[in-house]
Design a protein around this nucleic acid. Structure first.
Length: 269
DNA sequence: AGCTCATGGCGAG
DNA sequence: TCGCCCTGAGCTG
């Protein structure tokens, strides 16, 4: 289940395992048979990520555009390739490695122009070197929408999902319901820098950890804990539990069809 | 076996 | 704002 760090990691893993060599492409599920046939046996030139979008480039203006959505999942492994199950939308394989894609929202063959259109409708990505936080600030600073909703809007910032949004707001002591126009430029710049650092670590470890060393259970003299999604976090999915920092109760509420989590004690207006 | 929920996003009203 | 698409895990019976 993917936020931007997952996709950047997948791009790096694809480059390592498949780039610059011919690759076999199939669609055991059958829903991408035509696309797979078009690239089967060709050289995968490069894999690239922007936000939660993955692009596999085969030259000649042919790209496979992949978006995992909420349920999409990749299984990467070393040969031998296991027998495919009937939900594998796309399987890439060479003599050493394989990659199985299941449940994506999008898996389609697109042109250079279509790829560019995707980039054009996405905001800057903290994981793309050179991307400009000022572009996001232009929208944020003019918006009456809550910063919690803005952070999830991929046209504003690309790659942030429900975990990073909750965690970065906590780490900066920002009430999720503050509007974009109520935010100060320095607050946004600090959040952007923090997102870049957190997400880079996410790419490295393939999981989301956001708890500062001084707030770990050991440092706080509390029993060790395990968060149920594979990383150590402050507020995400910790509704009604005690805040690691102030001990207050973590709250949750629906916001734009997603669950928002925050600590009212630590995140003041 | 069937329900609910999940780190997304789209299009119809 | 709602319904819908995609899959699988973790419950409940």
């Amino acid at each position: 289940m993917p936020e931007g760090h997952t996709i950047h990691r997948l791009a790096a893993d694809h480059n390592k395992a498949f780039a610059e060599r011919p690759v076999r492409a199939t669609s055991p599920q059958g829903k991408f048979s035509d696309g797979a046939a078009l690239v089967d046996g060709r050289i995968l030139e490069t894999a690239e990520a922007h936000g939660k979008h993955l692009f596999l480039g085969f030259g000649g203006g042919d790209w496979i555009h992949i978006h995992l959505g909420l349920f999409g999942k990749y299984t990467l492994g070393a040969a031998p390739v296991p027998p495919p199950t009937d939900t594998v939308r796309l399987r890439l394989a060479n003599p050493e490695s394989y990659a199985d894609l299941r449940g994506p929202t999008a898996c389609a063959l697109i042109t250079d122009a279509e790829k560019q259109a995707v980039h054009d409708r996405l905001g800057p990505d903290p994981l793309r070197p050179g991307d400009d936080p000022g572009k996001a600030w232009q929208r944020i600073s003019r918006s009456r929408t809550s910063i919690a909703a803005l952070l999830m809007d991929q046209k504003v910032v690309a790659g942030v999902g429900n975990v990073y949004r909750a965690e970065v707001l906590f780490r900066h002591g920002i009430d999720p319901y503050r509007t974009g126009r109520d935010l100060a430029r320095h607050e946004w710049d600090a959040m952007w820098a923090d997102l870049a650092a957190l997400m880079r670590e996410g790419v490295r470890n393939n999981r989301i950890d956001t708890v500062r060393p001084e707030h770990t259970p050991e440092a706080m003299g509390r029993p060790p804990r395990v968060d149920d999604h594979g990383g150590e976090v402050y507020v995400y999915r910790r509704a009604a539990m005690a805040c690691h920092v102030c001990g207050g109760e973590i709250r949750t509420a629906g916001l734009a069809a997603r669950n928002l989590f925050w600590c009212p004690g630590c995140q003041q207006r």
